[in-house]
Nucleic acid binder design. Sequence first.
DNA 1: TACAATATCGGAAACGTTTCCGAAAATTTA
DNA 2: TAAATTTTCGGAAACGTTTCCGATATTGTA
Lengths: 348, 348
Amino acid sequence: MKHTTIKDVAKRLNVSISSVSRAFNDKYDIKKETKELILKTAEEMGYHPNPIAQKLSQKKTFNIGIVVPEFVNEYYSEIIIGIQEVFISNGYQVLIMQSDEDAVQELANVKTLIHNMVDGLIIAPTVESNNMSFYLKQYQNGYPIVFMGRVEESLPASKVLFDNKKWSFFATEHLLRQQYTKIYHLSGYKNLSVSNDRIQGFLKAMDKHRIPKANYKVIEGGLQAKDGIAIIEDLIYNNDLPDAFFCFNDLVAFGVIKRLKSQGFRVPEDIAVMGFTETQMAELNTPQLSSVKQPTFEMGKKTADLLLQLIDKGPDQPETIILNGELNIRESSVNEKFADSSLLFQNK
Amino acid sequence: MKHTTIKDVAKRLNVSISSVSRAFNDKYDIKKETKELILKTAEEMGYHPNPIAQKLSQKKTFNIGIVVPEFVNEYYSEIIIGIQEVFISNGYQVLIMQSDEDAVQELANVKTLIHNMVDGLIIAPTVESNNMSFYLKQYQNGYPIVFMGRVEESLPASKVLFDNKKWSFFATEHLLRQQYTKIYHLSGYKNLSVSNDRIQGFLKAMDKHRIPKANYKVIEGGLQAKDGIAIIEDLIYNNDLPDAFFCFNDLVAFGVIKRLKSQGFRVPEDIAVMGFTETQMAELNTPQLSSVKQPTFEMGKKTADLLLQLIDKGPDQPETIILNGELNIRESSVNEKFADSSLLFQNK
DNA sequence: TACAATATCGGAAACGTTTCCGAAAATTTA
DNA sequence: TAAATTTTCGGAAACGTTTCCGATATTGTA
């Protein structure tokens, strides 16, 4: 319970406190033999420098903070794992907090972390985050912050994004090439930049392929399976079903598929479905779900690299990293009338 | 960037440092008006006590650590959310580390957290954890530690467990009452106490219903969908398929269902499947998966309560909390020959 | 051998708090 | 009004480090 301190080691060897300190951070002058002796006895005595005292003295905590909306879904969990890998191997501890998709909680989390003097912050803002001005102020004051995911590309700060527009375009185009001509996009909340990007990609594909406006639609909804179910029920009620659904994420897609099946529709024979942000359930589902895989692990690592650089070298020109994904076509979006159609579209 | 300190506030008001400190921790003598004045100007100056300095002075960090095997699956994520809720509302920060199912990494994590002087630890040991003696030593030295999940009931320390044996028994009995008579249990690694408990529950049900030994089997395997798939392939190869599978978890069950379906079997008409540790995908799957729901959120809260008590009141008699679950019967385990069979078994 | 240059080390301040101790001020009591 | 009590506060040590500064010991140079 009582930790042995630097003083204990110094006393034991009749050397000064500073010498022991020097032995541990070998950037100061110390004789090789003394250093080794000190390290050896310190080891024997079970001495470890007290991180709290080090932090106070060094004005550096070797802690960084992550604030994510949630980590029940695989998406953020995997990103966090990527972040941790980088920081832990650089001697940092990673504090994780979740805002539960609540902007108030998110701001509180960020403040808590700042008061705890984390050396840097990674923020994945929540849906309706109007806290950006506070974060930006901190950033402009020199506080190392890197943003992730749900932020505008125009944000004047370093950030790691997924190219939602491009991959939404690819996903939509895939559906079109499968000869599905009436396609509805179940979008996320429209105040999410991610949603808008995906809508734009969707519309761009429609535009390119000259699909008449009557044949496509963007429907705003939530991020859960139940939201997908609710929309399908609406559409069934209004007798307004398309050939294919392009969903905001896999969970919504699973909801859609479930509800369609319970209504007697076959997927993809009657109606095709695509997801986004691939989950491990995609290939376990019946039918296997086509989806866009995001490079979560890599996103985490890139974000961490950016922050580490910001911490070590100080503020610099904001850098924006935009990552690409992978289009994984599975059963749920393959039109049987085109035998080798799965080959029509190659990942890029 | 430069934080305002207690000195700045003291200087501004021409009071002593101790008075400012007293104003913030109102356990010492201070006149009401001075206190209010100090708090007001501190607020204006944007002063916040530096947690690092507080920790050094108080010998308390107000941090607790959690070490889990992983948090990609919902199980630990949800438990962590429960833990966080309790601790954050008590003014603690929660440091989360994951061992990635690796005992070496797990030990390193625990040591890191201890060196960082967390006030307490929650450990969910990994599969092949032979670190228990180290943890127990710390615990016996008075370090507040609470264990969770994968530990033996006999462990002489406070812990929160799920009653695996009982709910495995219930799940198995449900299958038996559905008139499935040849049932295989796909178990997790046998060196996991959790696996053994579930095996025992399974065997107990077999025993109670006097099922001949030839009609049931326990097959050891992994925790992933692919492990379920591999086992099914083996069984198909050996032409050794039962009426029903009782799987270690939902993921394995999803793998099993997928492989059975791809072989042309119908679930549950030909073969029934049960999962365990319910996931949100259970009711989205086709067929909907029967499973045992674990009270993850509550487990987190109970564990946190136990640790908080240990921190506040010091060592005491070890307490073991064993929680109950819920049997959620869905399509995958209902024998159609018994119309109202889903009512045969009620949760308890 | 004497001096300069360098390598090594101890002392002490600093980081920002809490908290003990005692002194001054305010209040109560006689 | 003086003494006794209680409130309120300032000073300073302590928490365990890092790091600057200067002192001493060692080595090299002429």
